[in-house]
């Protein structure tokens, strides 16, 4: 038994090491490219350690106002998108746990909304947004709503899982006590859903922060961050693209480190 336990422990260590390496390598390369001269990035054999350090790329991307503007806009868009997705996701999950027909409809809609490739939706969508005046606005509200729609299925399914874990008796008891449905939802369900709500919010936020296809088409002049990075990357500016990438990754990293226990909750099953 203890022999086997040791073997498992070694496996655990090896897996952890693997996870760390695959996570660190891209980040390291990003940092290296952001702070080394371009010629270093084109050398053969590739240099793992830069020969010349420079702040030129960072200076280049911060010298125009673009970066600050898109950073703020990305944060706004992601916040609005995450709030909307979480709110609508909660409503949908609630309706779906209470009613079999609602569940069927909900699932059909969630699945259908994820079927079409981005291009097929984005083009007609641009036309619709221009008509209603939500296309390419400085606040990025139109894009935020689209991001919310994209994040809604994941948020709803996460919350559906959380609703299912709440025992029905709790609601029945409250109902017998004369509480209204709304009171039950707000007083009984919501407190139990705290972690799932946080997880849904964080995941929706990240998916919006990350999204560049719709951003590219729907916010052509008032850009969010990913299209800005894309633009530098497409035009072969390795250094500047890496510098921007670092800037956009840093805040998310902080959020994750702070909130990781919400995503990975307290351990339960002793699987290993």
């Amino acid at each position: 038994m203890s022999q086997r336990f040791k073997l498992l422990e070694i496996c655990r260590r090896a897996l952890s090491a693997f996870a760390v390496v695959t996570a660190v390598v891209p980040i390291y390369l990003l940092i290296k490219q952001a702070f080394s001269v371009e010629l270093d990035s084109f050398a053969w054999p590739p240099r793992w350690i830069p020969h010349h350090l420079t702040l030129e790329h960072l200076h280049k991307v911060t010298s125009t106002g673009e970066l600050r503007e898109s950073l703020i806009r990305s944060a706004e868009v992601a916040t609005v998108a995450a709030c909307t997705a979480t709110l609508l996701g909660t409503m949908l999950a609630y309706a779906m746990t209470r009613d079999l027909r609602a569940r069927r409809w909900g699932l059909a809609a969630l699945t259908a909304s994820r079927l079409l490739p981005m291009i097929a939706v984005a083009l007609p969508l641009a036309t619709v947004l221009i008509r209603v005046g939500l296309y390419d606005t400085p606040s990025g509200l139109g894009l935020a709503l689209v991001h919310a729609a994209i994040a809604l299925p994941v948020a709803a399914i996460l919350l559906l899982g959380a609703f299912a874990k709440i025992p029905l008796e709790l609601e029945d008891a409250a109902f017998l006590d004369g509480a209204s449905q709304l009171t039950i939802l707000l007083r009984i369900y919501l407190p139990q859903l705290k972690q799932a709500l946080a997880a849904a919010f964080v995941l929706s936020f990240l998916s919006s922060w990350d999204e560049f296809g719709f951003g590219l088409l729907l916010q052509p002049t008032n850009r969010t961050l990913p299209p800005l990075i894309y633009y530098y990357a497409v035009f072969g500016d390795v250094g500047a693209a890496s510098a921007l990438a670092l800037v956009s990754t840093a805040p998310v990293l902080i959020v994750l480190v702070a909130l990781r226990h919400i995503l990975i909750r307290q351990p339960k099953p002793p699987a290993f």
Binding site: S16, A23, L30, L206, P226, A233, V252, L253
Partner: peptide
């Protein structure tokens, strides 16, 4: 470190 590492690829913007 492991927890953060496992989630890391999710955090780096896709295009990056």
């Amino acid at each position: 470190v492991t927890e953060v590492s496992v989630l890391m690829p999710l955090l780096i913007p896709e295009i990056v």
